[in-house]
């Protein structure tokens, strides 16, 4: 198995990287660090895809002129173009969700003054209790 892993070392590195990202995501209590963990996971996928597109001894998939006004179109010359397209999509998706997640984090920070989700949760429960008390008081006033 180790031999095979060494053969597929880029993919193995990508997998370990995604494990690091996932651990970060699960264990960090700071929201920004969690989002960084997500980004590491995404990056691992790009590495994996880039490794999958590579074919030994072939060039990037941009047609080369053959010297007499034509183009070299033999498929034995170029690497697989599909993973490049998939990585592009992955990057755009990752940028979008990162921006959205950071915007939500900023909103949360504005409300609670903390990036730690446990503290935010504590503050939220406190606030909710206060809120309930306020509402009850108001109800009693209305009823009386």
């Amino acid at each position: 198995m180790l031999e095979k892993l060494l053969l597929n070392h880029y993919e193995a590195a990508a997998v370990i990287l995604s494990g690091i990202g996932l651990t970060n995501l699960l264990l960090q209590r700071n929201l920004i660090k969690k989002i960084i963990g997500l980004n590491i996971m995404d990056t691992a996928v790009y590495l994996f895809l880039a490794a999958k597109g590579y074919v030994e001894g072939r060039a990037a998939p941009i047609l080369i002129e053959n010297g007499s006004g034509g183009w070299l179109t033999s498929s034995a010359l170029y690497v697989n173009p599909v993973p490049a397209g998939l990585v592009l999509t992955g990057i755009v998706v990752s940028v979008s969700v990162t921006a959205f997640a950071l915007a939500l984090t900023l909103k949360l920070y504005e409300s609670y003054g903390t990036l730690n989700i446990d503290e935010a949760l504590l503050k939220m429960t406190e606030e909710q209790e206060q809120l309930e008390a306020v509402i009850e008081e108001a109800d009693e006033e209305v009823l009386s």
């Binding site: 997500l38 997640a101 939500l104 909103k107 949360l108 409300s111 935010a120 949760l121 939220m124």
Partner: peptide
């Protein structure tokens, strides 16, 4: 703040 927190939680799980 409550909806922001719920949305963030939803987003992280979805991602």
């Amino acid at each position: 703040a409550e909806t922001a927190r719920a949305a963030l939680r939803y987003l992280v799980m979805s991602l």
